[in-house]
Every structure is written in C-alpha cells, then in structure tokens.
C-alpha cells in the first residue's frame, strides 16, 4: 500500500517540479481527511498540484473560481424549473465533486466563502430545505492570494481554523524552473497521469491513518506545544483543541506516509508549520498575519522529549 502511495507522490512530483515537501504535506493532509489552504501568488502551480492529486488518487475534480460576484448558489447548486416535468430540478453545483479546487477564495464575499466552508465542515449541503450529502471522499483545496493584494476579503480566523493545513508553494528552485522551461507544458502532462489508487484503497488508507500509534510521550509533546502557545506572551492567542486534534491527525498521516505505524516528535515537527502557521498570530504585531516566527520558536524551544 505504501509503495502505491510513494508512486502517487512520484507521479505528482513529475508534474510539479521541486516541490516534494509541499506535495507530501498536501497528500498527508488529504489522508488525514483535512482540507488544504494554499496561499500563494497566481501562477505558482496551485491548480496543477490539485489537479495532479485528483488524477493520481482517482478523484473527480471540479474547480470553482471565486470572484466577488460569486453567489452561494453558484457553488452549491440551484433548483431550476423544468418545464417538461413541471417540477423544480436540482442542478448540483461544482461542490459535488470529490476534490474541489476553490480558487482565490478570498476574492469572494464572506457570504459565498461561508457557504463553502460550512459544506466543508459538515460534509453535506442544505439547499432549499433539502439536505444533500457530499461525496465521500470529499476534499477542498482552497487557494488564496496573499492578503496584501487589494480587493480581497481575508478569511477570518474562525474560518482559517477549518483548514487542516496552510501551505505556500513559493518560487521554484532554479534547477526546477529550468527543467520547467525546457520540458513539456506541465498542463499537457496532466491528462497523461493515471489513477494509481482507487476509491476502496483510499478509504482503506484513510481508515488506517487514525490507527497510527501516538504514545503517551508523544501526546505529552503535543500538549507541551499547545500549552506553550497558550501561556507564552508573544502569542496573541493559543491554539484551540481543534488545532491540537488537527496537529495529531496530520502527524499520524505524515508518519503513515513515512512507513511507520507510530508517530515520533519529528512527524509533529514536520507538519507543525503547515498546521499551526495560520492559526497563530504574534501579539506584538497586530497587523501581521501568520506565525512563521512563532512556529520556529515552538520548534526550537519546546522540549521534544
């Protein structure tokens, strides 16, 4: 099973060059049944990454481009009067896919944002009184432009908390970019990707991940981390219990990807920047966003053993 997972990683890495750690984190996020937020400038490969993941995992893929005039109905679907049957027929929106790419989520109004986020949280949508389940598995990869860009509605902290991880792809390394320029168009590679896992296998792996062993000593480390954010003065606020659960789930998935059936502190440290970065804010920096320095502090100062 793990060799298949590694094959998945390799396949995606062929399409997205020089982003192994991010790809690995993204896969771990999906295995932990979490949603992913990618924050980056346009053109850094966000779409490619999500599309490639969808293909190798054999998931149906939909993309929603968020704009300021996007309405909740555009995401969830609408009922349209069908003249032939004389009834309202429900036209499912793009959210009824297994992997949804919500592009530039911060361009839409908070109303539309929250429609998506509520669906993410509950795994179902309620439209005109009828509750419709979303497919299983269901992943959302949302992308976001950096906040400093104009004309955006930043996601509030409470909404950010619903994403298991936040990643930033960043510029590719020089060698990778050269390969990119020399090789084929990346988009053209995408259709050639084969599904490596089927739904049953993915479900099996997802069921396996929570069984990865987290010993007392490891839980203590997670508690120390969380407690540090709650007690140290440089943190504007501490991590929520949901965040600590997310951290543990992500660490389990990471350990699983690493081929271990138990979590070690290094797993937690590997996922820590992605999992808690968007959940923290420095107190002395009221305007700033994200806690990169804080995460580094946590990694450095909180005793791992």
């Amino acid at each position: 099973m793990r060799t298949r997972l590694n094959a998945c990683l390799d396949a995606v890495n062929q399409v997205l060059l020089g982003k192994e750690p991010q790809v690995r984190l993204a896969l771990a996020c999906l295995l932990a049944r979490g949603h992913l937020l990618i924050e980056d400038l346009p053109g850094m490969g966000k779409t490619t990454l999500s599309h490639a993941l969808a293909r190798v995992l054999g998931l149906s893929f939909q993309r929603i481009q968020f704009t300021s005039d996007l309405l909740p109905g555009d995401i969830l679907g609408t009922s349209v009067f069908d003249r032939e049957s004389g009834q309202f027929l429900f036209h499912p929106g793009p959210i009824f896919a297994e992997l949804v790419l919500a592009d530039e989520i911060n361009r839409a109004t908070p109303k539309s944002q929250s429609a998506l986020l509520e669906a993410m949280e509950e795994g179902q949508v309620t439209i005109e009184g009828a509750t419709r389940p979303l497919p299983d598995p269901f992943f959302v990869i949302a992308t976001q432009n950096p906040v400093s860009q104009g004309g955006t509605f930043a996601l509030p902290e409470s909404q950010l908390d619903r994403f298991l991880m936040r990643l930033s792809l960043g510029y590719p390394a020089k060698a990778a970019e050269k390969a990119l320029l020399l090789g084929d168009s990346r988009r053209s590679l995408l259709p050639r990707l084969e599904a490596i896992l089927d739904h049953a296998e993915l479900a099996l792996i997802q069921a396996e991940v929570p069984r990865v062993r987290a010993s007392d000593a490891l839980i203590d480390y997670v508690l120390r981390l969380v407690d540090a954010t709650r007690s140290q003065p440089q943190f504007a606020w501490g991590l929520s219990p949901r965040a600590s659960l997310a951290l543990l789930a992500a660490a389990r998935a990471w350990a699983f990807l690493d081929g271990r059936d138990y979590v070690i502190p290094e797993d937690v440290q590997a996922v820590l920047p992605a999992v808690v970065g968007h959940r923290l804010r420095e107190r002395s920096d009221p305007a700033g966003h994200g806690g990169g320095a804080l995460v580094q502090w946590l990694l450095r100062e909180v005793p791992a053993l």
């Binding site: 070690i264 502190p265 290094e266 440290q269 946590l298 990694l299 450095r300 100062e301 909180v302 005793p303 791992a304 053993l305």
Partner: peptide, 9 residues
C-alpha cells in the same frame, strides 16, 4: 542536543 530536537534528528 537542542531542546526542540527529537531523538531521530
């Protein structure tokens, strides 16, 4: 060993 360093690292 640094405080934040795990056994493996």
């Amino acid at each position: 060993r640094q405080p934040g360093e795990g056994a493996r690292a």
